[in-house]
Design a protein around this nucleic acid. Structure first.
Length: 580
DNA sequence: GCCGTTTTCGGCCCGACTGTTTTCAGTCG
C-alpha cells in the first residue's frame, strides 16, 4: 500500500493533537507539527526515499526518532505511538480541536467532566446548557460552540489542491499503465486548478472500457466502490476522497474533456452558443443533427462553434466565452515568466534556512532575485525582528550580495499592520529596505469598515510596498477577514503599491476573482512563495495556477519584471505617497 | 523530539485577547 507524504503528515498531526490534549511537553508536540508540515510539503515521496535507501534526516525537523516513525508508517501504514495514544483517548476527540475556541485544555476538560468524545456529544451538551456549568466555560463559549459546529456541518469536505495532487498523480499514473489505455486525464476542478477539490474527476480514453474500469476499482487505495458500470464508476479512496471515472472512446476524448472539465456554468454557456448555430454539444462530440462533426480534441470542439480554445483555468463563465469569440482571450502567465520572488522567510524568524541557502535555492528555481521578508517584532511567536535585528540582517544581506552570483537578495520585511493601521516598525528602519510587505496577523474579527480603514491607513505609510496575503484566509481552516478589497485595490493604485498573491497552497490569497479585479483596476499583483524553507519555492506553481484563474498575464505580475525594471516600480511607492 | 559557528544538553514561543474571573487560564497566531 503506497503511503503518501500527506498520510505521514496526517498521522504526525494526530499524534500532536493527542499529545497536546494529554498535556505533553509542548516542544515535543511542536516537533510533531513541524515534522508534519515538513514531510507534507517535502517535494519527494518519503516512501520512495526509503526505497532508494536515502536518509530521511535531510528533511528539516526529522531526526533519528521521527525518521524511524516515518519508516514504520511507510511500511505498515500506521504507527505504534498513535495506536497507543488512541487507546488512552477516544479517536474522534481530535476533531473537537477543529472547533474554533476549543484548544487542548478545554477538550480535555470536556472529555473528563462530561465524557464528550465526538462533535455530536459536544453539540448535545452545548444545547442542553451543560457546558456553561463547567469551570472556565460560560454562556458565550457555549453559544460559540453551537454556532461553530453548525458552520462546520454545512461545509462538505474538500481537499486542498496540493493535497489532492498527492493522491491524484499516482492514481493517474497507475491508470495510464493499464492495457489498451490511450490516455488518462484529470478533469473537473482539479484540472481547472481550483484551490480545493471535492471529487476528483478522471477521464480515460480506452477501447476496452470494462477492463479500464476494473483496473480502477481494483486500485489498492480504493476503500469503497460506490458505483461500477461499463463506462462510469465511482470510488472512495482510503484518504476519503471520492474519485469518479469516465471511460470514453479515443475519438471522443476532446468532447469528454470539455464536458468533464466544466465548470457546469461554462458548459451551459458553451451549449447555448452551439444551440444558436443549430449545433449540439455533449460528452461525445459536437453534432449537427445526428452527424458528429467534432470531438477528437478540445480545440476542435471550441473551433467548431466559432470559439478559440479556452484554457481550463478560465472555464468559470466569467467572460471567457465572449473573449474566446472575439479573440480576446488573455495569454496567461506561465511558470517560466517569474523572474523573482518577493516574500520569503529565514531562520531569523520562523523559517528553516539561512539567507545563503534561500538565495541559492531561489536561483536553482530560475529566479534572479529574492526578497527576504521576515516577520516584525509584533509576531512574537515567530521571534519577529526588532529594528536592531533587522538592521543586522540588512548588513548581512549587503555582504552576501557582494559575493552572490546570479541572484540578488532584496532587503525586506513582512511588517505587521497594527490595530490602528500603523506599522510595527519605525519609518527610520523601513527607509533602509528595498521592499516592505504589510500584513495582518491579528484582530481578524474587526468589522468590514474598521478592517478596511486599518489597511488603507497602512498604505499611507510611504514605505509600504505590497499588501501580503490580502484576505488572511487559510483554506479549510479560517475564512477571509471581512474587508472591502475594491477600496484597497484602488488605494493601492493611488499610492503606487501592490497586492500579493500568496502562492502557499493553504493560502492562495489573493483569490482568483480579486486578481481579476486588480487587473481591471490596473494594479500589479506579486506572486510570492512565502517560502519558509528552501524547498517551498516549488509552491510558486500553485500561485501561477491561481493567477491564471484570475486572468493574469505576464504584464500583470510585478515579479515578472527584471530586477532593473522592478526597482523603479518599488521606488515609486515613496514618490506617489509624497506627491499626495 | 529536534538541533548545534556558546554543540551532545539545554533551549525551543511569547504577547495579546477573550471570557471568565476578581487575578487569570486558555487560545491564537
Amino acid at each position: 500500500m503506497p503511503v503518501h507524504n500527506a498520510d505521514v503528515a496526517a498521522i504526525f498531526n494526530e499524534i500532536a493533537d493527542l499529545l497536546e490534549i494529554q498535556s505533553a511537553n509542548p516542544f515535543r508536540v511542536r516537533a510533531y507539527r513541524n515534522a508534519a508540515r515538513s514531510v507534507g510539503e517535502h517535494g519527494r515521496s518519503v516512501q520512495t526515499m526509503i526505497g532508494q535507501g536515502e536518509d530521511l534526516k535531510i528533511i528539516p525537523g526529522i531526526g533519528d526518532d521521527l525518521a524511524g516513525k516515518i519508516a514504520e508508517i511507510a511500511g505498515s501504514g500506521t504507527c505504534e505511538l498513535l495506536e497507543r495514544l488512541r487507546k488512552t483517548l477516544p479517536a474522534a476527540i481530535t476533531e473537537l480541536l477543529q472547533i474554533p475556541g476549543l484548544g487542548p485544555k478545554r477538550v480535555r476538560a470536556l472529555h473528563e467532566a462530561l465524557d464528550i468524545q465526538t462533535l455530536e456529544d459536544l453539540d448535545r451538551a452545548a444545547r442542553q446548557g451543560r457546558i456553561r456549568l463547567l469551570p472556565g466555560f460560560g454562556e458565550k463559549t457555549e453559544q460559540r460552540i453551537i454556532e461553530n459546529i453548525e458552520a462546520r456541518l454545512n461545509k462538505s469536505r474538500r481537499f486542498r489542491l496540493d493535497v489532492a495532487t498527492q493522491y491524484a498523480e499516482p492514481l493517474l499514473k497507475y491508470l495510464q499503465a493499464g492495457q489498451g489505455v490511450d490516455a488518462v486525464f484529470a478533469a473537473g476542478s482539479f484540472r481547472r486548478l481550483r484551490d480545493t477539490v471535492g471529487d476528483l474527476d478522471v477521464l480515460v480514453a480506452a477501447r476496452d472500457s470494462a477492463a479500464a474500469t476494473r483496473r480502477f476499482t481494483h486500485y489498492e487505495e480504493v476503500k469503497t466502490v460506490l458505483a461500477s458500470g461499463d463506462t462510469r464508476s465511482s470510488v472512495v479512496l482510503a484518504c476519503g476522497m471520492q474519485v469518479d471515472l469516465r471511460v470514453v472512446a479515443p475519438e471522443s476524448i476532446g468532447a469528454a474533456l470539455v464536458y468533464f472539465t466544466g465548470s457546469k456554468a461554462h458548459n451551459i454557456a458553451l451549449r447555448r452558443v452551439a444551440q444558436t448555430q443549430g449545433l449540439k454539444i455533449n460528452e461525445y462530440g459536437v453534432f449537427k443533427g445526428t452527424q458528429r462533426i467534432a470531438g477528437e480534441t478540445e480545440d476542435s470542439v471550441y473551433r467548431t462553434i466559432g470559439l478559440g480554445w479556452v484554457p481550463p483555468e478560465l472555464r468559470e463563465d466569467r467572460g471567457e466565452i465572449e473573449a474566446a469569440r472575439t479573440g480576446h482571450l488573455p495569454t496567461l502567465i506561465e511558470p517560466g515568466d517569474l523572474r523573482g520572488d518577493l516574500h520569503a522567510h529565514t531562520k531569523a524568524t520562523d523559517g528553516h534556512d539561512g539567507l545563503r541557502d534561500m538565495a541559492l535555492a531561489a536561483r536553482q528555481c530560475g529566479l534572479s532575485y529574492l526578497a527576504i521578508t521576515d516577520h516584525s517584532q509584533r509576531v512574537a511567536m515567530a521571534h519577529g525582528l526588532d529594528p536592531i535585528r533587522l538592521a543586522k540582517q540588512i548588513d548581512e544581506i549587503d555582504r552576501l550580495n557582494a559575493v552572490l552570483e546570479g541572484i540578488t537578495l532584496l532587503k525586506g520585511i513582512e511588517v505587521d499592520i497594527l490595530e490602528d493601521g500603523s506599522l510595527d516598525l519605525p519609518d527610520s528602519i523601513l527607509a533602509r529596505l528595498d521592499i516592505v510587505l504589510g500584513a495582518i496577523h491579528s484582530h481578524f474579527g474587526f468589522s468590514r469598515a474598521r478592517q478596511t480603514e486599518r489597511v488603507l491607513r497602512a498604505m499611507d505609510n510611504p514605505y509600504f510596498s505590497i499588501l501580503a496575503h490580502p484576505t488572511g484566509r487559510l483554506i479549510g481552516e479560517r475564512d477571509a477577514y471581512d474587508i472591502d478589497l475594491l477600496r484597497v485595490i484602488r488605494k493601492a493604485r493611488a499610492r503606487g503599491c501592490y497586492l500579493e498573491l500568496n502562492a502557499h497552497p493553504e493560502r492562495l490569497d489573493l483569490l482568483d476573482t480579486y486578481c481579476q479585479m486588480a487587473k481591471g483596476e490596473g494594479v500589479l499583483v506579486a506572486i510570492n512563495s512565502d517560502a519558509h524553507s528552501r524547498l517551498e519555492f516549488a509552491n510558486l506553481r500553485y500561485g501561477i495556477g491561481q493567477a491564471r484563474r484570475g486572468w493574469l498575464e505576464k504584464a500583470d505580475v510585478l515579479n515578472s519584471r527584471s530586477l532593473a525594471e522592478l526597482r523603479p516600480l518599488l521606488a515609486r511607492t515613496v514618490c506617489a505617497a509624497e506627491s499626495t
